[in-house]
């Protein structure tokens, strides 16, 4: 059991890292990885939203949708669940921690339509994971995304000083860099066979 969960965690964080091997969630990835500070804040927000939305959608999918035979509606319903939850989080954060809200509010809105947040519940549903497995999958994907963000932010901060050709400054070099990191992450392939 624990072994299985560990495998799911490592597989979703490293081997099938959403950014570097599935190329999902790139808009947030490039948007917040310019500064370390925002990257760290984003990773924390993202991971918590990911875990909670994975749990919520698992509950709805297995307790409501499957008994009613509504499995085919999963994309629509998952988007609804995530959007509602993020909106709630947004409101709560604005009340509780205005400082964090002003830093991350705009990204919290971005998370609503993020592809990873949608991909995790869909993968959980397709793989017929149980509740703990679904939670681990969410946590692993969040950790993998955070790792990607923090690595990227640290390198991009260093690249600010680099003599990058003018046409490649900013986003283009960030895309090239992501490609190269993805090449390095290929080393993890085949590490675990689920």
């Amino acid at each position: 059991m624990l072994n299985e969960l560990g495998k799911i965690f490592i597989a979703s964080a490293l081997i099938n890292n959403f950014v570097f091997t599935r190329y999902l969630g790139l808009c947030i990835f490039f948007g917040v990885s310019k500064r370390m500070e925002t990257a760290v804040g984003m990773s924390m927000t993202f991971t918590s939203v990911m875990v909670i939305s994975a749990a919520l959608s698992w509950l709805v999918y297995n307790l409501v949708m499957l008994p009613l035979g509504l499995g085919f509606l999963k994309i629509v319903i998952f988007i609804g669940i995530v959007a509602a939850f993020v909106q709630a989080a947004d409101t709560i954060l604005r009340k509780i921690s205005p400082g964090l809200y002003y830093k991350l509010g705009i990204y919290l809105v971005l998370i609503t339509t993020n592809c990873i947040i949608l991909a995790v519940p869909v993968i959980n549903a397709d793989e017929k994971y149980n509740f703990m497995q679904a939670l681990t999958m969410g946590l692993g994907s969040g950790a993998g995304f955070s790792l990607a963000l923090i690595i990227m932010a640290s390198i991009r901060e260093k690249l600010e000083l680099a003599d990058v050709p003018k046409v490649f400054q900013g986003l283009p070099i960030a895309f090239v860099l992501t490609g190269l990191i993805a090449l390095a992450f290929l080393g993890f392939s085949g590490l675990i066979r689920l």
Partner: peptide, 11 residues
């Protein structure tokens, strides 16, 4: 070279 030449490459 895209990263600015010798001294700036990440990998």
């Amino acid at each position: 070279q895209l990263f600015g030449g010798l001294g700036f490459n990440v990998f």
